[in-house]
Design a protein around this nucleic acid. Structure first.
Lengths: 340, 340
DNA sequence: GCGAAAATGTAGAACGGTACACGTAGAACG
DNA sequence: CGTTCTACGTGTACCGTTCTACATTTTCGC
């Protein structure tokens, strides 16, 4: 009758309680927890039994003070873009049979919010970071990567030494779109890009578009316009384009969401899609497939991007220091909005 | 020349470094950090200056061991539903001028993932939790709430004592929809609800639908069908309904996303919206407004829900124990899909 | 059987904060 | 002028883990 002190002041079960219950030292329990060297089968199972019995869970903040927290951080620019949920699904798949957990931050495509999130993820001792479409400058990224294992998705930084990158071949994406449209007889092809493009993937897509237009001898038709992400901005830019002196025959939008808004505006202006205007999006999100949209788009397999980046991150946490740069090949999915 | 030991083994600036630099005790710095009682203006500014100079940031995991981490956790069922981003925006607004930071978890509408997330948020010593559309049972919720300040959004639990709730009046939502449709001449109104409804808001909407149908003397037309969230399930359910013996004149879908998929299927089957079939969604997300969708929907002001829940949570963290239950009033936004 | 090496377990000092219990000095009071 | 307050700072015991030493036991080669 000397075991009543298990739950001291507070009520949380600690490693100490487990040690007492199993009749071993605190250090031994810690070893079992970390799968560390020097634990016999007997001890392991004894400790495991006590942990189950007491329903013990290690306190991440306490672990963080000396070792790992087994928590990874993911930063998304925007929760609205459904493409990111594919990436997320891939990450979750990769993490399934590991002890790692994922925590998210949403930067709302704003650099200072993103920086704040990165800081607080570091402050809560997360073991590694995945950044999607980061807007931070190279210097800060390198600095963060020097402290924490890091992987960037959708960020082209050829010379980046401190972290891994996982990308779609965004130049190729744009090239595929132009080729497809040219194949369907369109010549005057414009591109609707993102204003204040802090993102390198936008640059890549613009570059791909320009290159392929020149390649196809359509250099004189190159027309890149830019708009923000709010409905108002997109509508204004679209109207201006479609009223302007030269109306394009086809429009490549940097992401599906924008393309759907453009379809809406064009329809309201009395244009028929694709007879008067062909539209192509990017990311092949769920909405593309709806009959009322039937939007041609470029698929970049977000799931694979997510899966790969999680794997790379864990490798890095486990000690790899040489950088890896993974690229997936996009494919175009043709629907009615571009002439079928 | 005796200050070179600031960066010891590691390189992170600690409270000790700040104390040394400012020429005060560690305890004093901690007090400034926490805005605690007993700090003179002189000391405060001296310490603040050192913190800025050294670019000090407190380590959340260390703080968590004795005090607060100033980190709040939010759990979303599904990143795909754009409605949640409105809630998120509201929460972020409420948190803007506070020391609190937000971290997200995505449960993928799966109970055991949600439970895992809640656990790991508790393990990382977050100060409070906001759960959206939780699927956990009442017992577990009470247990969590007993440990951590908690607010549930989109969860009806009249007798819940341990936590606050923030809700749309979902019964009223459904009633507004039925009334609107009846006003436009529709009688045979069906409802497409969520299968395996772990969520109480679904129950409320179904209840509101049934009540109002009876109220309008249309009890014999009541028809609730259910489907999961995957495209396949939605398509199958829709096809079955629209081929079935009795085809409804109008369909109320529990969330916009489903409604858009239904429009797609109905269109492909040759039906005209709204002449052959009226459709109404819920949440008034961005897609409703696109010309190609023009979907009538119910607006529940996600931003307000988020704002309010963050405020309630902080109040609770600061000591309030009496539960509050906040309800917003929905309003219907009429577009062409229901007859204009 | 003996000594060395390998295997297994333990003690206890960190880690970076918080907060309680004090100490001290000046102000207010009678 | 002594006493009691009040305001402000400090010293230090924690919080729950990890991990480096080190102690002890077992295994093994000869």
């Amino acid at each position: 009758m000397a075991e009543i002190k298990a739950t001291r002041g507070s009520d949380r079960i600690t490693i100490k309680d487990v040690a007492t219950d199993a009749g071993v030292s605190v250090a031994a329990v810690s070893k079992v927890l970390r799968d560390a060297y020097g634990v016999s089968d007997g001890l392991r199972s004894k400790v495991r039994a006590s942990m189950d019995k007491l329903n013990y869970r290690p306190l991440a903040s306490a672990r963080g003070m000396r070792g790992q927290t087994y928590t990874l951080g993911l930063i998304l620019p925007d929760i609205r873009n459904p493409f990111f949920s594919d990436i997320l699904a891939g990450i979750n798949t990769a993490l399934e049979r590991t002890p790692y957990r994922l925590m998210l931050g949403i930067s709302q495509s704003t650099t200072h919010i993103e920086e704040g999130l990165v800081d607080s993820m570091i402050d809560s001792q997360m073991d590694g970071l995945i950044l999607i479409g980061t807007a931070e400058d190279q210097g800060r990224l390198e600095a963060t990567a020097a402290i924490k294992p890091m992987v960037a998705i959708g960020h082209f930084a050829p010379q980046s030494g401190g972290y891994d990158t996982v990308n779609n071949d965004d130049q190729l994406s744009a090239q595929l779109v132009v080729r497809h449209l040219v194949g369907n007889g369109y010549r005057h092809i414009a591109m609707l890009s993102l204003a204040s493009h802090t993102s390198t993937i936008i640059e890549e897509r613009e570059l791909g578009y320009r290159r392929e237009m020149i390649e196809q001898d359509l250099g004189s038709f190159i027309n890149v316009l830019r708009a923000g992400q709010t409905p108002r901005e997109i509508q204004a830019a679209t109207r201006k384009l479609l009223q302007g002196p030269v109306i394009p025959e086809a429009l490549f939008c940097w992401t599906d969401f924008i393309a759907l808004e453009v379809i809406s505006v064009a329809t309201e202006m009395g244009l028929r899609i694709p007879e008067d205007l062909a539209i192509v999006g990017h990311d092949n999100t769920r909405h593309c497939d709806f009959a009322q949209n039937s939007l041609t788009s470029v698929d970049q397999s977000g799931e694979l991007l997510g899966l790969k980046s999680a794997r790379l991150l864990i490798e890095r946490i486990k000690g790899r220091t040489k950088s890896e740069h993974f690229v997936v090949e996009p494919r175009i999915v043709v629907r009615q909005s571009s002439g079928g």
